[in-house]
């Protein structure tokens, strides 16, 4: 798989406080905010029916629970490896959305990282950043 560019955000899962308290451990049953994990829009056929990246013109490979992806923050070049633990983001709700830092932009939401993973390569308060995702 060649690197795919797009947008990344973060989500909470597992035991948590506040509005995250009801998040649960994700579609794979293993998700925890403190672990290096992520949500992927094509984690299963049922997942793809919800996230529908194809509606935004994106084709993402089917990858199941535990599969490793490597995400690079295109704003600073920082990179992190994580495993699939949930289904998401719901790409089709945001078709065409674009986030930029300077002249570097990403279009369409392709991955959500756990807080532990996202905060390793970006500030949680940024919420959304351009990224690239690959498997090596």
């Amino acid at each position: 798989m060649a690197a795919i560019t797009g947008e990344m955000s973060w989500f909470c899962c597992g035991n948590s406080w506040g509005p995250c308290g009801t998040a649960g451990h994700g579609a794979c049953g293993t998700c925890n905010s403190g672990s290096y994990q992520h949500a992927w829009p094509n984690a299963s056929a049922a997942c793809l029916e919800i996230t529908r990246p194809d509606r935004c013109g994106i084709s993402l490979s089917r990858r199941g629970c535990g599969f490793r992806h490597y995400t690079t923050n295109r704003c600073n070049g920082k990179r992190i490896g994580t495993t699939i633990a949930d289904c998401g983001p719901q790409t089709d709700l945001w078709c065409g959305e674009r986030s930029c830092c300077g002249s570097v932009c990403g279009t369409n939401r392709i991955i959500d990282l756990t807080p532990a993973a996202y905060s390793q390569i970006a500030s949680l308060s940024s919420g959304l950043s351009p990224c690239s995702v690959d498997i090596v």
């Binding site: 948590s16 293993t30 925890n32 905010s33 403190g34 672990s35 290096y36 994990q37 535990g66 490793r68 923050n73 600073n76 920082k78 990179r79 992190i80 490896g81 994580t82 495993t83 633990a85 807080p115 532990a116 993973a117 905060s119 390793q120 390569i121 970006a122 500030s123």
Partner: peptide, 19 residues
């Protein structure tokens, strides 16, 4: 953000992160 080398295995808890 981001050490040059990732010391924590993908999927594992990060000991340098608290919640």
């Amino acid at each position: 953000f981001g050490a040059p080398d990732q010391a924590v295995e993908p999927g594992a808890p990060d000991p340098n992160f608290a919640e």
